[in-house]
């Protein structure tokens, strides 16, 4: 709306496209490239549920189209100007003010200047749950329990009426190491973030793991834990503890979040 008015004061006698119009075009095309980069690099999974990745394709297409039209406008204006055609000079009239351009550049700046990382142990801040509501889409729960992830196990615990049934049940899960000062010395949590849509609704969940050597593990380190469950007490709650037989350091998985 500022644009409609600024044109009265500033634009009337400007023969060529103002710098703002070039920046605006650059931002639109830059955002298209940024979304494309997120898709190609796989960084998209740091931000949103992969189920919604088609949204990023839409963004690439629309940002690209908007940028292309904007560029076409600029180039046409320049050609007209070179031909000294006073009548057809740049008349897009859409001055976007510098503050607005700056604000619109913020996602691009943060996205390119700060290395893309998923939420990890440092983002939990004490807010981690072992209690997961069992939802309808328990598709994986039919399969081999050794394939179950942290979320599947917590759902199974939540659904169970007798937690002792998990005693001696073997498990093999991947997550990152999370510890609080009040954890017993031989205990850490193998944790994941779950996201439904995007990191705005991220929740940290974790399985308590008993592993006497855990001091050797760094916080936030991605690990693969195998072992068997034994019902025990964790932070005053009865829950199957994963007594580890092996803890292996692994790369951060391609999909860092779990999708409920």
């Amino acid at each position: 709306m500022q644009a409609a008015h600024s044109h009265d004061h500033e634009h009337e006698h400007t023969p060529s496209a103002p710098a703002q119009a070039w920046v605006k075009t650059g931002l639109l095309l830059g955002l298209a490239l940024y979304f494309l980069y997120n898709i190609v690099s796989g960084n998209l999974t740091n931000y949103i549920n992969i189920r919604f990745s088609w949204l990023a394709y839409i963004a690439v297409a629309i940002f690209g189209a908007l940028g292309a039209v904007s560029a076409y406008d600029l180039l046409r204006a320049r050609r007209a100007e070179q031909a000294h055609d006073d009548h057809d000079h740049y008349h897009n009239h859409d001055h976007v003010s510098w503050p607005v351009l700056f604000i619109t550049a913020i996602p691009l700046l943060l996205g390119t200047l700060i290395p893309s990382q998923p939420l990890g142990a440092s983002a939990i801040d004490g807010n981690i749950s072992t209690n997961v509501v069992a939802v309808s889409s328990m598709s994986t729960l039919g399969s081999d329990p050794l394939q179950w992830n942290v979320l599947d196990w917590l759902r199974a615990f939540n659904k169970s009426t007798n937690l002792a049934e998990f005693n001696n049940q073997p498990a093999d899960v991947i997550g990152f190491v999370y510890r609080e000062p009040d954890f017993a010395e031989d205990t850490f949590m193998v944790a994941r973030f779950t996201i439904s849509c995007c990191v705005a609704d991220a929740n940290a969940i974790g399985l308590p793991v008993v592993w006497p050597d855990n001091v050797a593990l760094d916080d936030s380190q991605w690990v693969r834990v195998s072992g068997t469950f034994t019902l025990g007490a964790f932070r005053g709650q009865q829950i199957p503890l994963l007594v580890a037989t092996a803890v292996e350091i692994v790369e951060q998985p391609k999909h860092p979040y779990l999708y409920p």
Partner: peptide, 21 residues
């Protein structure tokens, strides 16, 4: 800053396509 950036971009990336539509 890294956590903030991830959270901000998460919302922006999810919401921008809807804004564009």
């Amino acid at each position: 800053l890294s956590i903030f950036s991830t959270r901000f971009l998460g919302i922006f990336i999810e919401a921008a396509p809807f804004l564009l539509l």
